[in-house]
Amino acid sequence: MKPERTKPKLAIALGATCSGCDYSLLDLGAGLLDVTDQVEIVYWPTGIDSKLEDLQAVPDRGVDLILFDGAVVNEDNLEMARLCRKKAKMLAAFGSCGAYGGIPGLINSGSPKKILLEVYQGLPTRSDKAEALNFEGEDALPKMLGQAYSLDQVVDVDVYLPGCPPPLKLVAGLLTDVLAGKAIPKGTFYASNRAVCYECKRVKENKSIDAIHRYHEIQPDPTRCLLEQGIVCLGPATRGGCDAVCCTQNQPCRGCMGALPHSEDSGAEMMSALASIMELNNENKEADYTGIFDGLNDPLGTFYTFTLPKSILGRRKVDQS
């Protein structure tokens, strides 16, 4: 007699996240029920009444797929990441936060611990009451790590679903593959291996510009490449898979799908590309190039919106004073 196949186990765990990634699963519509029919969800705090003990009770490597939604910013996130690695057969970095650090990664522009203290400065001093309640003790303030990390900077990751949020068809792709028992090589990205530009329907003519415009300063030609109109679009340095939705909405790509396979630092790639095409169409005079990027106020925010922790430098210089 053939043994009955048990349902694969799925878990969705949260780090430092806005929860948009797992919440967007509801937009699968009725298709969500097709998925939940076929899996046993052992843990998903946003969606069901699961307790941490439920996840801890599973034998090691007993959860077929764990989607880790979020960056790692405090010690709680770190412990959760380690628990998930322990319990997962396949661990996925779910969303740009897990894959690259995401928007929470912008805290690396400063020092998380310093920022936390600044925010809570001027707090009422601890009273006896507070001590007795064990309320203002160690437990009270979150224990920030020195910086925000992507998931694979703290544990081993098997598969990546970048995007903010990941395009639903890519998420569906991973779920389908796991349910079918398909072998997924370690390190697989559920995203295109080619740049966003290949999916963008805008017409590309000639990459040579003489000025940079912020996207709100001009109303661009809706048919032509945004970069060619002087708007800083990270498409050339960013993985596709998203159907270039931002460009379709007349806004530049901000790089949420992360670096292309050959590159370690999508921000630096794009800085290089932008500098290359900023030719001014002028006689080659050195003076003409001085200060040409004065209008680009914030390279950190512009080129590393979603990917700062995963970039080569990763975070602002540690203040050693």
């Binding site: 500098a275 001085t290 390279p299 080129f303 602002r316």
Partner: peptide
């Protein structure tokens, strides 16, 4: 024109590294 490219890249890079301390 290679050195002009380098100059332009350098300007962006300098701004960024400065932001990073």
């Amino acid at each position: 024109k290679g050195n002009y490219k380098a100059l332009r890249r350098f300007q962006l890079l300098k701004k960024f590294t400065s932001q990073m301390g």
